[in-house]
Simulated scan of single mutants.
Amino acid sequence: MPDYTTLAKTIASLTEGEDDTVALMATVVCEIHHFDDRFDWTGFYRVTAPDMLKIGPYQGGHGCLQIPFSRGVCGAAARTGQVQLVADVDAFEGHIACASSTRSELVLPVFNAQNDVIAVFDLDSDQPDAFTQDDAEALTSILSDVFRR
């Protein structure tokens, strides 16, 4: 299993005292993207209007610029506030193919201290069934530590 304990400590150290959400997102996405070879595209989609997500910050190739809450894996995570662990994106009804190389996806809702969904954190892999429940739990904990302060 990946060393999420060390990753969490690194991110906590790098983000300590920072309160700018975009700066926090940029730092988190950089550290997580380079943490594991399974992570082909890693990024945030921020809630910028009612029922609308916009891209950024992210690492990897281009992504979709905007995603309504009503569409795709990211929209489902934002709409429901629940983790979306998708072993095969082709089997997910309504999947949005921002990159044709994506085979599996893990999308985590990001909450602020008031328990509002402020973004989703999207991890794409070019490998099928790349993500586990352990990944989801560890990354949810890291995101909570950073954004629910």
Score class of each variant (00 low, 15 high):
P2N: 12
T5Y: 12
K9D: 14
T10N: 13
A12Y: 04
A12G: 05
S13N: 09
T15C: 11
E16A: 15
E16N: 13
G17L: 03
G17P: 05
G17D: 06
G17Q: 05
E18K: 11
E18L: 11
D19T: 15
A23D: 10
L24Q: 01
L24I: 03
M25F: 05
A26V: 03
A26M: 03
A26D: 05
V28H: 00
V28E: 00
V28Y: 01
E31G: 07
I32F: 05
H33K: 10
H34T: 15
H34K: 11
D37N: 15
G43Q: 12
Y45P: 10
Y45S: 12
Y45A: 11
V47W: 09
V47A: 11
V47L: 12
V47E: 11
T48E: 14
T48W: 08
P50F: 10
D51N: 14
L53S: 06
L53A: 09
K54I: 12
K54F: 10
K54L: 14
I55L: 15
P57K: 12
P57E: 10
Y58H: 14
Y58M: 14
Q59E: 11
Q59Y: 09
G60F: 08
H62L: 15
G63R: 10
C64F: 08
C64R: 09
L65R: 14
Q66F: 09
I67Q: 04
P68S: 13
P68F: 08
R71T: 09
R71Y: 09
V73I: 15
C74G: 03
A76Y: 01
A77H: 02
A77Y: 02
A78G: 00
A78Y: 03
A78R: 00
G81H: 04
G81N: 05
Q82N: 13
V83L: 03
Q84G: 00
Q84A: 01
Q84H: 01
L85W: 04
L85E: 04
V86S: 02
D88L: 03
V89I: 08
F92E: 04
E93A: 12
E93M: 14
E93N: 13
G94M: 10
H95P: 04
H95E: 04
A97S: 13
C98D: 03
S100E: 12
T102H: 04
T102F: 00
R103C: 09
S104Q: 08
E105W: 00
E105T: 02
V107Y: 00
L108V: 06
L108K: 04
P109T: 09
F111L: 15
F111M: 15
A113G: 15
Q114N: 13
N115C: 11
N115R: 10
N115K: 10
V117N: 07
I118Y: 06
A119Q: 07
V120F: 01
D122N: 13
L123T: 06
D124T: 08
D124S: 08
S125I: 06
D126M: 14
D126E: 13
D126I: 15
D129C: 08
T132D: 02
Q133T: 15
Q133R: 15
A136T: 04
A136Y: 01
L139W: 00
T140C: 01
S141L: 11
I142T: 01
L143G: 01
L143N: 00
D145A: 05
D145L: 03
V146A: 02
F147W: 02
R149F: 07
R149C: 06
